[in-house]
Amino acid sequence: MMTAMRLRSLGVLAVGLGSLAALAGLAEYSVTSGWVSKFVLSPPSEVWVAAVEIYHDEKPFGALLSTLGITLAAIFLAVGFGLPCGWALWRYQTFGRAYEGWLGALFASPKLLLYPLFLVLFGRNLGTLLIMGWVTATIPIMLKTREGLMTVSPVLLNVGRSFNLTERQMLWKIMLPSAIPVIFTGIRLSMIYTLIAIVALEFLLNFGGLGGMVGEMYDRYNIPGMYAAIVFVVLLSLVYFRIVQGIQTWLRSV
């Protein structure tokens, strides 16, 4: 049974990698044979050369650190603001009910398009990126903190009451530890949406980081470099999301 499953997984992996290699071969052939213009699609061999050039000239890991730094700083600020606000929305339930619908609508709204407003207020600098990241990150943390505190098991609350715990002790010893998996779901959503928002803003404003790197390649009309930068951003975002997912799985198991 185990061997059959492993064989099937290996088959899936082999076909997946094989089809990727076939796609790369088709791209190479279609450009070198003149089917597709070099100004539209770059042959993978040129993309590889461009990737090596980008690695030496553009310092992509510096761009990565810049993007990650702003993203994590925005999330740090959002946790500092969103956790107490989420607690307040749970503690004062009328306010929670009044604002829940609004926060849900704001979460689904295209907040990224508010950036001209912050550009006007703060200028084209890190402040705009940070505040946009914070706006994106705060709402899921607030909503999930409230949800996490609302769904704490009544059995745990009764245990706390039977020990005559104060309200503060109940919060720190019982409610927060029990709500952590749900709260981290909010933080995970924040980490995903904030990275996407920061990369998009860097791209729109040509303001460094991973998004700025892709935008710069396009502006220079360096087509192989553009493809290499896009592949780099996609691979890095994949690693980032896997790490975030891994942390959540670990937290659930603890």
């Binding site: 990275l195 996407i196 729109l204 998004g211 892709v214 553009m226 493809y227 896009i230 951003v233 994949l238």
Partner: peptide, 13 residues
């Protein structure tokens, strides 16, 4: 989950 905006240059090309 990748930021789709990075594909915009390809779409514009």
């Amino acid at each position: 989950p990748a930021p789709k905006v990075v594909f915009l240059p390809i779409l514009m090309v």
